[in-house]
Design a protein around this nucleic acid. Structure first.
Length: 529
RNA sequence: GGGUCUAUGGCGCAGCCAGGUAGCGCACCGGACUUUUAAUCCGGUUGUCAAGGGUCCGAAUCCCUUUAGACCCGCCA
């Protein structure tokens, strides 16, 4: 490590915040409040990547504050986006008729929120609440209704020719050389995208449009033929993505926004629009990779491999999500629920490092690990380490104890000396580890080949175990039964593991059987004789 | 057509974005313990960090070129 000064907590988040501050300074901009933004999609079920955008933006906010600046996170729901595709699992709600309508104008099929869009956003917001992220919520619908973007829209529409040419030059998309980058919501049929903007009447701040057929999501959607004018200061309608971010950044004074590589082109154009058209130096950015599923496929709302934060938290702690998201930002990531156990362990390890229980020689690494731990705790780390229980051990124990799980696993942990007292946090851990074990423990009904001698031995064992009097040494008893019935002990043990656990190996079987309950085991075994 | 990411022991991966002894899990080998399955514990082996070049006192890490794979964009938001 060189003598380079450590910035903040020594993580990539701090470095990013520091770059941001340097940039603001060299731009000569006011730094009284450095606002960061995260966009929330509202048209599909929000997955963990959507959560990541907001969580990381919040991390940057924390870093900025830690470096002595005021900051604020805006969570902006794009709820004027039109519904283009009906998400997997929602085919039965009759949503077809709402295709192309802004998601905030579609009723919530579940009847829980004011609209379809709000329903989707809420899933994400609840996820954020659960991991402890604070934000200021804003919606596209209100933003446009209140005319918050009217000046930006006006400027953009006045420069639409220039912008259209630039879009073609930067990303090769030519449609905005023909059309205005503004989609009104048809006043007659409530549809977006079908309303084609023809002309901007600058004096009146109105866009003339005609509702015509349009192709959306590979399907033709009928326009209603209505012709009208949309008032950009208060009517519903929205800018195309290629220019909308810029308008928002300028209107909300946004200084930082991360983005996924799928919208790289849009960001490129928006940066230019912000700088050159709106005269608002674009926010500082960081690009991240999409989360992919374990097959390397993009997590997609329509493919049905959506991994939500809520689903994750059935099996992993909120901190395991934060760790996943704060660990690093670059790199393609194949992600699945099977990553939870190692993240759970890694958190404990970081905690041990933070509290000095694990020595780390490299000072830079030490700083970084401690810093990461602090971010995972949202820069408010606990005063003392929590009791650590290995998550994988819990999964194993949960696999064995299915009835009265909490109580019996807890007892086992006390027996093992892993914990000293039952604690509520441990109960929670047992619960989620139990969920994990129930979900991913394939209980393959193994066909077991049993010859007559094995059956006979099993029968004897079953009777012995089922007797009222408990054999002193079950391990030895099993061994003796095998031997005296001409069954290889090795094979006999294997058969028992197959019957009890569905595997060919397992924990030492004597104590294991008393743990499960010998009568219970006797009953199980008798089914095979 | 444009762009991004990835490549590290047999397998799966971390380390890279702030350069400083190449690490972890599984597997494998040896030992301890167990009445011989298993588990556990201790110890050990395994690497031209994809290839080539550059910067540097020092590169898995930074820069350039190449190869292979994945993903994104080129509908739309």
């Amino acid at each position: 490590m060189s003598e380079q000064e450590i910035i903040g907590k020594g993580t990539w988040i701090d470095k990013l915040a520091s770059e941001l501050i340097d940039r603001e300074k060299s731009l000569g901009r006011n730094t009284d409040l450095l606002r960061v933004e995260s966009g929330l999609g509202a048209s599909g079920i929000p997955h963990i990547g959507s959560l990541g955008d907001a969580v990381r933006a919040y991390g940057v906010k924390l870093a900025l504050e830690n470096l002595g600046y005021k900051s604020e996170l805006i969570a902006y729901s794009d709820d004027l986006d039109g519904l283009r595709k009906i998400p997997e699992g929602m085919k039965d709600f009759g949503l077809e008729e709402h295709i192309a309508k802004p998601v905030s104008l579609i009723p919530d099929p579940y009847g829980e929120h004011d609209s379809y869009g709000m329903h989707m956003s809420s899933i994400l917001l609840e996820g954020l609440d659960e991991v402890g992220i604070k934000y200021e919520f804003r919606r596209a619908k209100d933003t446009y209704k209140q005319g918050l973007l009217k000046d930006q829209i006006h400027t953009i529409l006045q420069n639409s020719t220039k912008i259209g040419d630039k879009i073609a030059e930067l990303v090769g998309q030519e449609k905005y050389q023909k059309y205005l980058p503004y989609f009104p919501v048809c006043a007659n049929c409530n549809r977006l995208y079908t309303a084609e903007s023809m002309e901007y009447i600058a004096d009146e701040r109105k866009v003339k449009y005609r509702c015509h057929d349009a192709e959306i999501g590979g399907k033709m959607v009928k326009g209603c033929g209505y012709e009208g004018e949309a008032d950009i200061t208060k009517d519903l309608g929205k800018l195309a993505w290629k220019v909308e971010f810029a308008a928002r950044w300028s209107a909300f004074d946004i200084r930082f926004e991360a983005y996924g590589k799928d919208i790289m082109d849009s960001v490129k154009v928006n940066d230019w629009v912000a700088d050159e058209i709106l005269q608002f130096p674009h926010p500082h950015h960081v690009k991240y990779e999409m989360f992919l599923d374990k097959g390397g496929k993009k997590i997609s709302k329509s493919l049905g491999n959506v991994l939500t934060a809520q689903r994750w938290m059935e099996f992993g702690s909120p901190k395991s999500i934060l760790l996943l998201l704060y660990k690093r930002i670059t790199g393609a990531r194949e992600l699945g629920l099977e990553d939870i156990p190692s993240l759970m362990s890694e958190y404990n390890e970081l905690e041990d490092i933070f509290f000095g229980r694990i020595k780390v020689d490299n000072p830079a690494k030490l700083t970084k690990s401690k810093g990461l731990y602090e971010y995972v705790n949202l820069l408010n780390p606990p005063k003392q380490a929590s009791t650590h229980v290995n998550y994988r051990l819990l999964i194993e124990l949960a696999k064995i104890f299915k009835e009265n799980r909490n109580e019996r696993v807890m007892k086992k942990l006390l027996d093992y000396g892993v914990i000293k007292n039952p604690e509520p946090e441990i109960e929670k851990l047992i619960e989620i580890a139990g969920n994990y074990s129930d979900e991913f423990d394939e209980q393959e009904k193994t066909e077991i080949d049993l010859d007559e001698t094995s059956k006979k031995a099993l029968k004897i064992l079953s009777e012995t175990l089922g007797a009222d009097e408990e054999p002193e040494d079950i391990q030895n008893t099993i061994y003796q039964i095998a031997k005296s019935n001409d069954v290889q002990p090795k094979d006999f043990f294997k058969i028992l593991y197959q019957i009890i656990l569905g595997t060919s190996r397992g924990p030492k079987i004597g104590p294991f059987i008393s743990d499960i309950g010998r009568k219970q085991v006797a009953k199980t075994i008798s089914e095979y004789t």
